[in-house]
Amino acid sequence: MTTKHFWAAALVGCTLMAGCASQPDNELRLDGTINGHEGEWIHLAYTVRDTVQVTDSTRIADGAFRFSRPMEVPVAQATLYIGNPMDYRNVKYASLFIEPGEVSVAIDTADFMKPEVTGSAAQAENDSLNAVLAPLYARLQALRDSAAADASAGRKAELQGQQETWVDSLKAVQLAFVRSHPHSFVALSYLPFLMGDMTYDELKAVYDNMSPEVKQYGNVASVRDELAALERVQPGRPAPLFRVVSWKGDSIGIADLRGKYVLLDFWATWCVPCRKSFPHVKELYKKYHAKGLEVFCVADDDSKPDTWKEVIGKDGIQDFHHVLRGLKWDRSKGLDGMDHTNDISDLYAIHYLPTKYLIDREGNIVGKFDDEALDAKLKEIFGN
């Protein structure tokens, strides 16, 4: 019997027993108010243990709505929405944390994404964190507005650098919260958005410190998947294998280059820093190819293969090996339409472009390198 069916059976059984309490302990009673959507349907959605999506719907009447249902988990990050979730132009979202008991939410249509929530301890915890983050977000937005209004290229670059500093500050506050709240479901909700900047050891330390209860719920599977991916690409580990069709139409895999050092470069045609790095990569290739260096490029351009092939010629990188990452996406289904089954980027825990790995002659990962560190490493391996 599934957890969902268990709770449903328990609720039915309760109504048949005179000694049962009037409301089960896992019952969510969410009462809401909203303006401007009289007679429309409002939907509640949340995820149970990563994969099971729970949805419920009710009609708005007299500016109010109610959801009363058993919850399969003690806390969930939920979404209230009106409209078609597959049409971003005609849908409105409000995010909140829900838990069993009496929860109230007030939604102002003019600011739909910022509901006022009472009765949820998790939401109160999240609100407290957001109060600390609000000044940082405000400063970041001010810098973005200034960059948009200033036509000077030099000034834009300066403001971009300042934005990156404030983004780092935001992430530092969030990460400090996650590390200091191992029993918090709210902390777990932030972790997937932070782990792309974390090393394997950093993420493992945070995950290992989380309470067993928290590890049962929410999007914890994404954290475990990230840990597994990061573990696969630790220095000294065998590079994850793949075999796909290259830009020339032949079958190629990373194992085909055994006996060579391989620079595995993850990029995209739309990534400006990626393409700016190619002249330097070409210099490295020219300098070390005869000594045993190959360049293998994985592009995030599955939806535009013709553009990908065009840019390979335009940027003069035909001497490199080229494949697409392997992400399939049925955009009509939104994020649910993504198929990562053959995604090379997932194999290598890629979150940013460009990302460069170096693989040794035996097919083991040497490490992940930026340009400066890569220069030093190749010089160490091949000499001047």
Rank of each mutant, 00 (worst) to 15 (best):
G119I: 02
L80A: 09
E164F: 06
I107N: 02
T79M: 12
L80K: 14
A124L: 08
A121T: 15
Q174P: 15
A153R: 07
T79S: 10
L159F: 00
S152E: 13
A121M: 08
A157G: 03
A76M: 10
E164Y: 09
L133K: 01
V132I: 13
D127C: 04
L96F: 05
V117A: 06
D108G: 01
A134C: 05
L133A: 01
A124E: 10
A142K: 14
A147D: 05
V117C: 06
K92C: 05
F112G: 01
T109V: 05
V73K: 09
K114Y: 12
A147P: 10
E102W: 08
A157T: 00
Q163D: 02
V105Y: 01
Q141K: 12
R139E: 13
V103R: 08
I98W: 01
Q123M: 13
L140I: 04
L80S: 10
V75C: 11
L159I: 01
Q174G: 07
P100M: 14
D145N: 13
S146W: 02
E125H: 01
S104I: 03
E116I: 10
A94K: 00
M113K: 04
A142Y: 10
G83R: 06
G101W: 05
E99R: 06
S169V: 06
V91T: 11
L136F: 04
V73P: 02
I107A: 05
A131Y: 01
E99Q: 14
A157D: 03
K156N: 07
A94H: 02
A176Q: 11
A147L: 09
G83Q: 12
